[in-house]
């Protein structure tokens, strides 16, 4: 029925040039040629704009950072101190904060996300998956500023009152779980907020990857007397691990790039502390926090430099994720 509708559309187009008059027909052909090439150029313009936008972003970030680039060179990345008041800038503490919060959150989000992906693709009845899947994806649609607001008023107090002390007393021998803080704004809280943002990404991507596993392969494993877990390990994960790794890397890319929600809950103190319960800062959160109130041109340029570091990290992560999913992709 719908296909017939569409064919009607096709044939209505076909009837259009059925004109007896030769001059009219020629004019129509010329029009077709002109409109065709116009559309072609327009489309090329759109495609080129996307490519040029990326180039322009890279260029603009580098040129914005030029003052800091010429001042510090590459050593900026290794400098620990960030003190606008005395005019000293370096990315190390922020890089540290970014990596710690992202690695912690992705580690947790991978377990949860892959588990949800398995649930949605292999465990849940279709009706359940059709409801739960979109709900999980909607978690990713919550704006970061709202999540940050919830972070400030729900998650940070909860972490402070119910998580920090118990974790410290049980796992205190691990330096990461040091003495509790006083406000709840910390790397730990930021990581928790990031988990909420990253889980839906890993869940949706890994579900899509798991759905590509042919059912014959799963049935083959089932027919050999395998339990559900063995089917998952033998027939599903073993054929999709590169896709799952790529999904986690994309989640990592999301985590390092988040600025707003993190800046709302991390405490905004530029320091390197092994203690997850201490306040910190990340590349993005510092830019979000200080960009509108620079104290010097070098301060602004240094923030562009931070953006450059973030951009490089992000592009490397994305390209690596792409490489992993393509080159170690399904050997089918």
């Amino acid at each position: 029925m719908p296909v017939r509708l569409l064919s009607a559309r096709v044939s209505s187009l076909a009837s259009f040039p059925q004109l007896s008059n030769r001059r009219q027909l020629e004019r129509l052909n010329r029009l077709d040629a002109r409109a065709g090439s116009a559309l072609r150029w327009l489309a090329l313009f759109g495609g080129a704009a996307v490519f040029l936008a990326l180039m322009a972003i890279v260029y603009q970030v580098i040129s914005g950072a030029s003052l800091a680039l010429s001042r510090y060179g590459i050593s900026f990345v290794g400098r620990r101190q960030w003190s606008p008041a005395v005019g000293r800038f370096g990315a190390l503490a922020l890089l540290y904060g970014t990596l710690v919060t992202s690695v912690c959150s992705v580690a947790v989000a991978t377990v949860l996300g892959v588990a949800i992906g398995l649930f949605l693709s292999l465990m849940a009845p279709r009706r359940v998956a059709a409801v739960v899947g979109p709900l999980v994806e909607m978690l990713a649609a919550i704006p970061s500023v709202v999540l940050g607001l919830v972070g400030i008023y729900l998650i940070a107090p909860f972490v402070l009152n119910n998580i920090e002390a118990p974790l410290h007393s049980v796992l205190g021998f691990i330096p990461l779980f040091g003495p509790p803080g006083t406000v709840g704004n910390s790397d730990f809280t930021a990581s928790l907020v990031l988990v909420i943002m990253v889980v839906p990404i890993i869940a949706a991507l890994s579900r899509d990857v798991f759905l590509t596993v042919p059912s014959e392969l799963r049935e083959g494993a089932e027919a050999l007397g395998a339990t559900r877990l063995e089917v998952i390990r033998g027939a599903v994960l073993s054929t999709t691990h590169s896709g799952v790794i790529a999904a986690c890397m994309l989640g990592f890319g999301r985590a390092i790039g988040e600025a707003i929600a993190v800046t709302q809950v991390i405490g905004n103190i530029t320091q390197i502390s092994h203690n997850l319960f201490a306040p910190g800062d990340t590349l993005g959160s510092l830019i979000a926090n200080q960009f509108l109130t620079p104290v010097s041109a070098l301060h602004t340029a240094s923030m562009f430099y931070l953006a450059l570091v973030l951009l490089v990290l992000e592009l490397a992560t994305m390209l690596l994720a792409r490489y992993v999913s393509r080159h170690f992709g399904s050997r089918r």
């Binding site: 936008a53 322009a56 603009q60 970030v61 790039g257 993005g284 830019i287 562009f304 390209l319």
Partner: peptide
């Protein structure tokens, strides 16, 4: 172009902000 599109999709939104701020 396809690659640029994928990279733009993963671009940290704060970089979109700082880009236009500079531009």
């Amino acid at each position: 172009i396809q690659t640029a599109l994928e990279l733009l999709a993963g671009l940290p939104t704060i970089i979109a902000g700082i880009f236009v701020a500079g531009l």
